Simulated scan of single mutants.
Amino acid sequence: MQTDKIFYSLFQSFPSIFFAIIGDNTINVNAYQFVSVELKETAFRIDGVFMPTTETTNQPLYFVEVQFQLDPTFYRRFFAEIFLYLRQNESVNFWRAVVIYPQRSLDPSDQLPYQSLLNSSQVQRIYLDELDTTENSLQVAIVKLIIEREETAVDKGRELILQARQQLADEATRKQIVELIETILLLPVRPFFRELEEMLLRSKRLTTKLSVNSSWEPK
């Protein structure tokens, strides 16, 4: 999806944004490189991996997945890829997994086989619409712009461009950020979210209706 590409481009150019999203500002971002990896002798490819630049480091490797569509079996695929990677790369001792959703409703319910992992600190699920922009406001706000409603996205984008020009001293970085914001504003994802919200609302109404009908008994 187009959103996957913008996220991976974002993390490759500005890895600090990823660590701001997961709430860890203690990490030296220069000690990581963002790459995609092929799993040997399989059709699997992991598009987003933050890999320590030094193999001897105790810093964890981060598996990153951007999930902007409904996928009931997502966790089965995701963890299969992770454990296959670990099997093929025995030098990896420390790892974490981060899944980025636009909203909680896209988090699949098929979680029971992986419940202990999902409940642990080793796996972190990010819901963009619930992110707090109080700290690292510019970095997190740029990411949240991706899911900003169509009616307010342009105004929000203008605010962020002004904020970037005021806060960023380095001209090259400032130019990159402004171009990134402009690219996000051109993404055709907001109509998708509107359709998704309508679909989820219809599904909820149908479930409620079926529940009411099934509980009704003729006298």
Score class of each variant (00 low, 15 high):
162 L>M: 09
35 V>I: 15
20 A>I: 02
168 L>A: 05
21 I>F: 11
212 V>K: 15
109 S>T: 12
23 G>D: 06
64 V>N: 01
85 Y>E: 04
51 M>I: 10
138 L>M: 09
149 R>E: 14
124 Q>W: 07
202 R>L: 14
177 I>R: 04
202 R>T: 03
8 Y>W: 10
10 L>E: 06
197 E>Q: 13
157 G>T: 05
178 V>H: 00
23 G>T: 03
132 D>C: 12
53 T>S: 10
202 R>H: 13
96 R>D: 07
52 P>H: 09
31 A>P: 02
172 A>V: 15
121 S>P: 02
65 E>L: 06
55 E>S: 12
161 I>R: 08
49 V>P: 01
141 A>V: 06
94 F>P: 02
160 L>K: 03
181 I>P: 03
182 E>Q: 14
90 E>V: 13
95 W>E: 02
207 T>I: 14
107 D>H: 08
115 Q>D: 12
31 A>F: 09
107 D>G: 01
154 V>I: 12
214 S>A: 12
127 Y>E: 03
48 G>N: 07
61 L>M: 08
47 D>V: 02
102 P>G: 05
151 E>N: 06
50 F>G: 00
99 V>T: 14
189 V>M: 08
184 I>C: 04
73 T>H: 14
32 Y>S: 02
164 A>D: 08
139 Q>A: 15
114 Y>Q: 06
144 K>I: 08
67 Q>S: 04
14 F>C: 02
55 E>W: 03
93 N>D: 11
176 Q>I: 02
172 A>P: 07
202 R>W: 10
79 F>H: 06
178 V>A: 01
71 D>I: 01
55 E>A: 11
189 V>C: 03
155 D>I: 11
219 K>M: 11
22 I>Q: 10
82 I>R: 01
21 I>A: 09
98 V>M: 01
83 F>I: 00
148 E>Y: 01
215 S>T: 13
68 F>M: 10
107 D>Y: 05
160 L>Y: 08
82 I>D: 04
137 S>Y: 09
82 I>W: 00
92 V>G: 05
128 L>T: 03
101 Y>C: 03
87 R>C: 01
159 E>F: 15
107 D>F: 06
140 V>D: 06
158 R>H: 11
162 L>V: 05
70 L>E: 11
188 P>V: 05
97 A>Q: 07
42 T>Y: 00
175 K>V: 15
142 I>N: 06
93 N>T: 11
171 E>I: 13
148 E>V: 06
115 Q>I: 15
167 Q>G: 02
44 F>N: 07
137 S>K: 09
122 Q>K: 14
127 Y>W: 12
63 F>W: 05
28 N>M: 04
72 P>H: 06
34 F>N: 04
100 I>Q: 00
57 T>Q: 09
100 I>V: 12
144 K>R: 15
66 V>F: 06
218 P>W: 07
207 T>G: 10
162 L>W: 05
135 E>I: 12
105 S>E: 14
63 F>S: 03
98 V>K: 05
159 E>V: 08
159 E>A: 14
65 E>T: 07
188 P>E: 08
91 S>Q: 13
62 Y>L: 07
44 F>R: 04
144 K>Q: 15
14 F>Y: 10
